[in-house]
Design a protein around this nucleic acid. Structure first.
Lengths: 226, 226
DNA sequence: GCCTGTGAACCATTTCACAGCC
DNA sequence: GGCTGTGAAATGGTTCACAGGC
């Protein structure tokens, strides 16, 4: 294994999806001044298995010490670096309905590496109002002021989502978080992640209906789900 | 393959997670009075591949006709049945901050098989107020009035989430949708699904940073992401 | 001829189990 | 002695390609 820090390792998608969880599990340890953590301990906090955690971390390189554990601070900063969170990313929230409103006010973005920079809506009655301390602008104002890389959050009604996606892609946006149910057609280089609230409930309904009590992770009947 | 309609087939999790998308793709077809759809057409609408769609549907049984396609209405009702959505599920939203507020007003729940029946908060200043046409109650009132099966949506601050989870599990709740970042410890028979908004952005940030332009699904550079 | 249903091949991810190192 | 890092095995999921039936 080359230790060259510039090697672009190929980190599996499944691992990438768990890194944010590890980072969040590490934060209280950093704050508490804990120096070292074992894969077993961290896995428990993060709600995964220790073997999986070790494999995940091994894709980032060798940041642990055998017989000891992982240096908390070093590991946190390495994951931060891998996720590209050294400096905050700009976020534009497009669609200022109930959900856009809530997202604008959500403090979790700021604490985890994101700066909501634009609130965008097309309704003239909403444009110009202040939400969570920010002025809502229309799409033209947004388009005119975007210069840097930005992540677009689409919280419009479903019918407008594709149109908005096309428009932000035309502005050069390459990352979209979509709350509108339905499929977005975007160019291949554009990353889209979808959050569909009703779908989540429907998946729960399926299991609830089946009474599917899968007793995985048995222990004393407690399963960590995070 | 037994065609016994009472056979409890084992539907893979990955398939279950896609069924809601198929159902939503079917709805406009049902409304438009389309009688039959091919796996190719439906797959395009749903943003998946036709072979995968056919395999998914094969787990539900044989509801297509070779050389013809799938009966739209029959397939929709079969998926509805499999997901357990013949009658609406009751939902309790716990935590009436910005997000809980938005969820209470979200029309997508009602249209996709759910009835928000309780809005719950612990803040005496919020309890008794009306949000989206419903009275907010405190946890005791909620606990006293739950009789049927209910899905709990946790939209409290992170620090309260575990406590709320314990409380609803004690009430007999077996399905939780959790918006609070962090791990929930619940008994093994309890289903938890998590939506972590900052995590989604962090995953996007990773790819944005890498400029990972994976040209999968090439065609003319358009990729469906739904 | 056409489109579903499905084994078989392939690929990704998870888990196991232990060698390697402190 | 203890804990990481990782090949190897097992599992789960996706894609291929074609047989089967209209």
């Amino acid at each position: 294994m080359t230790t060259d820090p510039m090697t672009r390792r190929d980190i599996p998608d499944a691992t990438v999806a768990r890194l944010p969880g590890y980072l969040r599990a590490l934060h209280p340890l950093v704050s508490a001044g804990v120096e070292v953590v074992s894969s077993e301990e961290l896995a428990t906090i993060a709600g995964v298995r220790s073997a999986g955690l070790r494999k995940d971390l091994s894709y980032l390189g060798s940041y642990g010490v055998r017989g000891v554990g992982y240096d908390v601070e070093r590991l946190a900063s390495e994951i931060t670096r891998q996720l590209g969170l050294q400096h905050p990313w700009s976020v534009a929230i497009i669609g200022m309905g109930n959900l856009g409103h809530a997202l604008a006010a959500y403090s979790g973005f700021a604490t985890r590496g994101f700066k909501v920079q634009w609130l965008v809506d097309r309704d003239p009655a909403v444009v110009g109002t202040t939400i969570a301390g920010m002025q809502v602008v229309d799409f033209e104002q947004f388009a005119a002021s975007v210069t840097e890389q930005v992540i677009a959050v689409i919280s419009t009604p479903p019918v407008a989502a594709q149109e908005v996606a096309d428009a932000v892609v035309a502005l050069g946006v390459r990352s979209i978080l979509n709350f509108a149910p339905g499929v977005l057609n975007v160019p291949a280089h554009t990353q889209v992640r979808k959050v569909d609230l009703a779908t989540e409930l429907q998946i729960l309904a399926f299991h609830e209906q089946r009474g599917k009590d899968d007793a995985r992770l048995g222990a004393d009947g407690i399963e960590a789900s995070g």
